[in-house]
Design a protein around this nucleic acid. Structure first.
Lengths: 302, 302
DNA sequence: GAAGATGTAATCAAAATGATTCTATGGTAG
DNA sequence: CTACCATAGAATCATTTTGATTACATCTTC
């Protein structure tokens, strides 16, 4: 018997068993039944298949009326830890798997900005069908205006979701914050070559960023551990259009000699030269030609 | 025919159709087959069931050889937009639903801190089985030490995952950063009442926080839109143990008169009194009894 | 107008699932 | 201690779901 031979539904149920054993230490037949609304017999069969595939993973414990995880447990499925955590915190609400109650012990970071379903689905359709979008958008500088944009990507900058799009008014690519769309409708026309993702220079330019523990910190080992640094350096490849957000989100000291210590940065940018020609650096803590202001704050378009 | 009458597997497939129509504008029989490794006949049946349930949602378009979304589309399933976005960006990798390729147009915020599967699963098991954990932990102040903790929750503070736990060495509840565990093993003993979540005062104290657009901003309507404020105020209930992280993550000006403008805060704390008695406020921008330092940075335990 | 791709519909066999019955284990109440 | 209860395993058989095949329809492309 092999995993690959099983059908989709049964693999899902086995993954559920595997997941529960690994993350909760135990799983009962009733859990399977509750999760998949399946019958008793089917659940018993699933356990017997799982036991056959991984006899060292579980043992029935009549005391707790559940299977418990054995010491020699080796997961049959890969469960990406971050997805697991996010899933637990949200109750696996991806709309495809069923909604389950959110975990009471696992809490994702609080999100204060909640994009609207219709906006997201509209943007996604415009992107995947490569069509322009006529929308009403509230910008900080000009207020609510009608405009036509050609979106190509949706990005979370750590605080909120925005869409990267060609703005026909400005004739350039800009970021639009998803919560500021008042309305949108797909236009049934083709988009031009200069409006596509391929033409977005700042999007396609990849910047190599090297981050190090901030030199002012006494014990940098813990920081190196946190970020999984090799030889004390964390190398990242980031789109130029997103670099500013990254540096701000992680509060990276981008000053010439990493002198922003008073702001409690954990990280410093080692190769400041990499930022040459990058826009949106109003966001980068400490980066400025004349070394004056540290943290200019959110960048708004329009 | 009703949704509730269908079995789990078929509901999943219909949800997939529904999702694709809404977020991509189209879906083909081949997509279903690829996703669920199902047969042709089954896919045709699923479409005919879906069509019966929601005839106004889709129309076959021979030109693109797919079903396309009709104007009158009304989703049959709820797809939480944020979960959808996170799912797209990660390829729905919750371990339960199948791993699919991450979307090429949807990018979640870059996470630089990646907890280890064994650490997370070990912590989760300790929590759900209510057992103490013997671990080696690298703290900033004391380096690598052995200690025994009793965890009760896992939390993402916006930058990284930490675990809230009773520290038997300090005889108090502390936050431990998930990436700093070198090893951990469950102890087979009961935990004391004063070590449980119920006894964690700062965890159980709920603080009412009122956030407003920063008074220095010229156009606060956009901010109110972003955060979905009612009457210009966003009211949150936050655990006292987590308030500091929240205020820092969202860069909330916590100074007496919201005078931190130079740091580009978008938000200000309206009811500063709510922070009375809250610990960890080293993190809160601008909050200090003597008004000196704005942003002391990361808080580390140990 | 023919070829090719996609989808519909109907049919039948194969596989998965649900329901039922009987047995075993161990905790709990009396 | 014993009886009872909840949980789980195993075997059986009916039912449902799925897979494979076939014949046919529609539309695009060449």
């Amino acid at each position: 018997m092999e995993l690959a031979q099983l059908n989709h539904a049964q693999r899902e149920r086995l993954a559920f068993i595997d997941f529960n054993l690994n993350y909760f230490g135990q799983v009962a037949r009733a859990d399977l039944i509750q999760r998949f609304h399946t019958g008793l017999a089917s659940a018993t069969r699933d356990f017997s298949v799982y036991r056959e595939l991984a006899p060292e993973n579980l043992a029935l414990n009549h005391k707790v009326k559940s299977y418990i995880r054995k010491e020699g447990f080796k997961p049959l499925f890969d469960h990406d830890p971050e997805s697991v955590l996010a899933g637990l915190a949200r109750g696996f609400g991806d709309g495809l798997s069923h909604l389950i109650e959110p975990s009471e012990v696992c809490f994702d970071a609080m999100r204060l900005v909640h994009p609207n379903t219709k906006v997201i689905s509209g943007l996604m359709r415009a992107i995947s069908q490569e069509k322009p979008l006529k929308c009403r958008y509230v910008s900080i500088s000009s207020g609510e205006l009608s405009r036509v944009i050609v979106p190509h990507s949706i990005v979370n900058n750590g605080h909120r979701w925005h869409v990267r799009a060609f703005d026909r008014k400005k004739s350039d690519f800009r970021d639009f914050i998803c919560t500021r769309f008042k309305s949108l409708s797909l236009l049934d026309e083709k988009i031009c070559a200069n409006e596509t993702r391929k033409s977005d220079k700042h999007w396609n330019r990849i910047v190599d960023i090297q981050l190090v523990p901030h030199p002012s910190l006494a014990h940098s080992e813990a920081i190196a551990l946190d970020y999984g640094m090799d030889d004390g350096v964390l190398c990242l490849e980031v789109r130029a259009a997103l670099v500013g957000y990254l540096l701000r989100q992680w509060n990276v000291d981008c000053s010439e000699r990493s002198t922003l210590n008073t702001q409690g940065c954990q990280l410093a940018l080692k190769n400041i030269g990499a930022l040459y020609g990058v826009t949106n650096l109003e966001l980068a803590p400490g980066y400025s030609s004349d070394q004056t202001v540290a943290f200019k704050g959110e960048f708004n378009h329009g």
